[in-house]
Design a protein around this nucleic acid. Structure first.
Lengths: 354, 354
DNA sequence: CTGAAAGCGCTTACAG
DNA sequence: CTGAAAGCGCTTACAG
């Protein structure tokens, strides 16, 4: 040992231990770093004996791969831009939880960006590109913005539309069967004896709105109830619009005995409107919502509604995007449909002696 | 050129262009990569002329630093664990938006983890550690979980408590002045002529609850109104608890003419309770909330409330954490207090001929 | 099925 | 104020 080797750090040398690396694991398992990498990445070609040795060493050292090194070496980095403009905080919250979770699990980076209707779509695409975004996640209502889809597609980024009623050939899509869910809920109201069932539609620029309306109409049709167009109103998914529609419906000469609102916020508003007019829910008016967000249980009585698994849908969409970024074969747009369910609470009841 | 240099890729060579690198910028600007790095990282020692040249080259090439390479080389990686158990989706949504935004801006990775009261704190700390989490972000009510704070502290991770009433010496804290906000709101009600003002407190295990109660009491005291303990109730920040408390208050012999609820969900429930009893809000009952989350505008009438800038508070907390991970000097716990504001809407009114 | 070499894009630690 | 060298921890592209 010369004096120079000693005492002070060598040139170019770095400080600080930062946990075990592939090299440490390789040494302990008596294999090459390459083999450790294979085990970590589930390469099926590794021999079982070797794999066991490596896994033992990994457990012993508490090895966790360094994501930064992995994405640098792999040349693969996946940045997903999550664009939101959704006025419903309850929806967005669930969506964010699901998507961040999945993005972390898959080693992707999530950039959350607010997008205003009035903003320029081209400027947005340019911004995403400058942030090196590979793929874009679109919750409603942006999942239905055709101009935006085209713009992002031109910029060469992959896309996933969540909860759209009109999956684009340019994008992945994750949806529930909105028509069937609305049909099921309306049929339930019919089953409870309701014949005059009011409808509050969602924003016309969201394609799912039309599907829900179709489901409502079909249920009435199947039940042999004559459609009365005066019972159909159109809101925009906000509480305020729900209030307006509900007041209009309740002011009708022949007042409906039940109202199906196309989301929970508007259903909550319907209950508020009923109370405002001195009507008891559900005794004098049954109300159903849609989505089963937090709003469904932040009213009294709590809402009977169709549950849309928002967090799961966000996870699935992230999975589709990450796969298409990392694997060219997964680039073909896929449409995944997940199950909805009916959640029965206290806002609806059967038509007895009214 | 030999035949071998040509035609096929050299050994060890990687594929695909992935955007300009420091080397590209350096070449164009005719400086070393090192200088480019300095400019990008705002090193003040770079000469202005040099800096200008480099910045021009950066703009020309549209250079964006590769975060993976940066954190690998820098040896600095910052992973922040966001632990949540908040039942309020409206609050969580804002919190998530703010924290993800800031984490991205600072090149930190955010891991979002749900934590149940019943779960083991030690197991949680172990899990965070195994995910290489450097710092933990705690929104309420976890920001008040002293056992959790101790546990995370023992594991050596930095922490930030958001919206706590009791900043720990072990953690950073970002708060508003809850006492002052509650005082301001109650004083407003007094100014409107109310003398019997009901109070719905938040969960007793959240320290901010006591502060809000103190503010309420002090306002009455300053106004010279005798405190009547029957007007004080305790909820747990959920809609349901707000409903129970409001019904109890409205069943009082001498009914209050105003109710101040410690968050918006409970205030919304108070309005529902009033309607349920046939009382007009605000004509027969004034109601105030706290937080100004989405719930404040998802009721009719919309709530007068104290605005807590949740997203900004989350951003500030992330900033404190990232700084303490990267800079030993920033490790000393800091307490940042941000401003609240009063948002006046339609749920309160002056006491006229009742 | 396994390994040796080179490289991903940046920054640290020096030395001028 | 600026630069040459080495290294961060992993994976790609080969070659056995």
């Amino acid at each position: 040992m010369t004096e120079q080797d000693n005492g002070r750090a060598k040139r170019g040398q770095r400080r600080g231990a930062r946990g075990p690396t592939v090299a440490d694991v390789a040494r302990l398992a008596q294999v090459s770093p390459m083999t450790v990498s294979r085990v970590v990445n589930n390469d099926p070609k590794v021999h079982d004996t070797t794999r066991a040795k490596v896994e033992k060493a990994i457990a012993e050292l508490g090895y966790v791969p360094n994501l930064a090194a992995r994405s640098l070496a792999g040349g693969r980095q996946c940045r997903i831009g999550l664009l939101h403009s959704n006025p419903s905080a309850a929806y967005l919250s669930e969506f964010l939880v699901g998507s961040t979770e999945q993005a972390n699990a898959m080693g992707a980076q999530l950039l959350v960006e607010h997008f205003e209707e009035e903003a320029s779509r081209d400027a947005l695409a340019a911004k995403l590109l400058s942030h090196r975004v590979d793929a874009v996640l679109l919750p409603p209502p942006l999942s239905d913005d055709v101009l935006l889809l085209e713009c992002i597609n031109r910029a060469g980024m992959a896309m996933a539309q969540v909860a759209t009623g009109a999956p684009s050939p340019l994008a992945h899509a994750v949806t529930i069967d909105d028509e069937a869910a609305a049909y099921a809920l309306t049929t339930r109201l019919v089953g409870l004896g309701h014949k005059r069932i009011g409808f509050i539609g969602g924003a016309p620029n969201q394609t799912a709105s039309a599907l829900r309306r179709n489901g409502y109409r079909r249920a009435l049709d199947v039940a042999g109830i004559d459609a009365d167009r005066r019972l159909e109103t159109t809101g925009d998914f906000t509480f305020r619009s729900g209030m307006d529609c509900a007041l209009a419906l309740l002011a009708l000469e022949e007042r409906p005995s039940a109202i199906f609102a196309s989301n929970d916020d508007m259903a909550a508003a319907t209950i508020a409107a009923a109370h405002r007019m001195g009507l008891d829910v559900p005794r004098q008016l049954s109300v159903c919502g849609f989505d089963d967000t937090a709003s469904a249980t932040n009213v009294w009585p709590e809402l009977t509604t169709a549950r849309q698994p928002v967090a799961d849908m966000a996870r699935e969409a992230v999975r589709l995007l990450v796969d298409s970024v990392f694997d060219a074969k997964a680039r073909t747009p896929r449409h995944v449909r997940v199950d909805f369910s009916l959640v029965l609470r206290e806002s609806d009841a059967s038509m007895r002696a009214s």
